[in-house]
Amino acid sequence: MKLLTFVRENNYQFGVVTEKGVLDVESAFMHAPTPNGESVPMTVHEVIDGGEAAVSRLAQFVTQALELVDNDCSYLIDEAKLKLGPCVTHPNKIICVGLNYRKHAEETNASIPQYPILFNKFNNTLTGHGEDIPLPRVSKKVDYEAELVIVIGKTAKYVTKEDALNHVFGYCNVNDLSARDLQLRTQQWLLGKSCDKFSPLGPYLVTADEIGNPNELDIKCTVNGEVRQYSNTSDMIFQCDEIVSYISQHMTLVPGDIILTGTPEGVVLGYPEEEQVYLKDGDIVTIEIEKLGKLTNRLVKENELA
């Protein structure tokens, strides 16, 4: 399934993408309640927390609701008319893996890491597809980073590599925006990674069963229509199962945690200094990963946002 979050009257609402449009789950339940009164997940986190049973209930409900659709259906919405939120709204943890693509490490003249390089971001960085992202007044070097996100679905502690992907709920796109001048000011990267709205997430959270092998996905970033990054997740140094297992050896992963798995070559930082042109007011960045849709955002001067 493809799940999304949209905004109605400043509140997040939960939707499921179908061939007939986006099913507004809450509205559909009001018009077409389950025959036996079973509960239906009403938020993306209720689905994630509920695991396979919640996914199954939701899938059955969507099928039932679509069977009752008529010409005046109010709970099917044209996706183009929706304001989307981050597809995971309240992760307990946002964990990031740095320098995790071989060619990206090479372009930045960095050594291939022996262990995953981990850092974190915070919920203030989350936003959705289509939202404007402020260019911080304190930075002149904001860079794009196309990345695959792992969304945890089951509590994971000391899990093996072989079992790791059984703890994954699904996957989505993210643009791990990075203010390079702030990031490289000290040895700690956090400042340059955690500016407001620096993790647009979505447009969809796609369940793992629809993805197959997450390490065989094309990944691309365009800026104003120009391809800047084009690679495949097979170039990861540490693959998704290794990442989940490694992190779980050191901290407990819980449902709804998200892991940003690193970016391929083609970032501005990887160009010779004289050729580096960082993101500017009006630039439109699109992240596209195979099977996960397109995530598009516009960069704007911070003082132009309301």
Score class of each variant (00 low, 15 high):
52 E>M: 00
65 A>F: 04
103 K>Q: 14
75 Y>E: 11
118 L>C: 05
67 E>M: 00
73 C>N: 10
103 K>C: 01
112 I>M: 04
76 L>P: 08
97 V>G: 07
9 E>A: 06
10 N>W: 06
87 C>P: 13
3 L>N: 08
80 A>Q: 15
34 T>W: 08
89 T>V: 05
8 R>F: 11
90 H>E: 15
40 V>A: 01
110 A>W: 09
68 L>E: 15
77 I>L: 15
47 V>N: 07
26 E>I: 00
65 A>H: 10
75 Y>R: 04
28 A>R: 06
67 E>H: 07
82 L>P: 13
95 I>Q: 11
73 C>A: 14
75 Y>N: 09
79 E>K: 11
47 V>D: 12
60 Q>W: 01
78 D>P: 02
48 I>L: 06
58 L>D: 09
65 A>R: 04
61 F>H: 06
16 V>G: 09
62 V>M: 08
112 I>S: 02
51 G>C: 01
101 Y>A: 04
7 V>G: 11
105 A>W: 08
59 A>K: 14
36 N>M: 08
14 F>N: 13
29 F>E: 15
55 V>Q: 13
81 K>H: 13
79 E>Q: 10
26 E>H: 03
16 V>W: 11
39 S>R: 12
51 G>K: 03
56 S>L: 03
103 K>L: 07
70 D>E: 09
28 A>E: 09
72 D>M: 01
7 V>E: 15
26 E>Q: 07
27 S>Q: 14
31 H>D: 14
52 E>Q: 13
63 T>P: 01
26 E>G: 00
91 P>S: 03
24 D>Y: 13
103 K>G: 03
48 I>E: 11
76 L>A: 09
42 M>P: 08
67 E>D: 14
28 A>P: 07
21 G>T: 05
27 S>T: 13
101 Y>C: 01
99 L>F: 10
23 L>T: 02
79 E>N: 00
24 D>N: 09
80 A>I: 00
74 S>G: 14
12 Y>T: 04
65 A>K: 04
10 N>C: 01
84 L>S: 07
69 V>M: 04
74 S>R: 10
17 V>P: 04
9 E>S: 12
118 L>I: 14
95 I>T: 14
30 M>Q: 15
36 N>D: 15
23 L>Y: 10
27 S>Y: 10
99 L>Y: 06
42 M>S: 06
68 L>G: 06
80 A>R: 15
44 V>G: 11
42 M>K: 15
26 E>K: 03
113 P>Y: 10
32 A>P: 00
94 I>F: 13
37 G>Q: 06
50 G>Q: 09
43 T>N: 09
5 T>G: 01
17 V>R: 12
62 V>N: 12
106 E>A: 02
110 A>Y: 08
48 I>N: 09
45 H>K: 02
41 P>A: 01
40 V>Q: 05
55 V>P: 05
22 V>E: 13
76 L>C: 04
42 M>G: 12
43 T>I: 03
97 V>L: 08
58 L>E: 06
33 P>G: 04
53 A>M: 07
15 G>Q: 03
31 H>S: 11
47 V>T: 13
72 D>A: 02
105 A>Y: 07
70 D>G: 05
96 C>Q: 08
82 L>W: 12
